[in-house]
């Protein structure tokens, strides 16, 4: 099989995930897009591992081992990420990323004013 097929598919999947991360507003949908990007990397790892194990007689199978590690880390990441999203939702009542702007630079003055009011009270 031509190596370009899996490599191009993986690049396109990665860019689809990139678009999702940048354009989506709901935090859970952003996590889905991150999963897409991780899967693109996995496909690359598997394809190049199969290629190297044939042409270079590489016996470590590093690509497949790293793919398994990536899958496990992605499972951990999705668990922690959803726990954080749920905590944010419980505190704020929303999971829109656009509304979580407490550390944004434009709102600095408001936060400072609120802090000052708290300090004086």
């Amino acid at each position: 099989m031509h190596l370009v097929y899996p490599a191009v598919l993986s690049a396109l999947l990665f860019c689809t995930g990139l678009y999702g991360v940048l354009a989506r507003r709901n935090a859970v949908l952003v996590l889905m897009s991150v999963e897409l990007m991780l899967n693109a990397v996995n496909l690359n790892l598997v394809a190049f591992d199969v290629w190297l194990s044939r042409t270079a007689r590489e016996t470590l199978h590093s690509g497949q081992a790293l793919t398994l590690f990536t899958i496990a880390i992605a499972a951990a990441e999705i668990g922690i990420g959803l726990a954080i999203v749920l905590a944010v939702y419980r505190n704020r009542g929303t999971s829109d990323i656009d509304r979580l702007r407490d550390t944004a630079e434009g709102h600095e003055t408001d936060a400072l004013a609120a802090e000052k009011a708290e300090a004086t009270a």
Partner: peptide, 16 residues
Amino acid sequence: ADSGNRWAALTVAVAA
């Protein structure tokens, strides 16, 4: 479902 910077995201993704 999509935020306001949709077109910027599309540009970045297509360029990448």
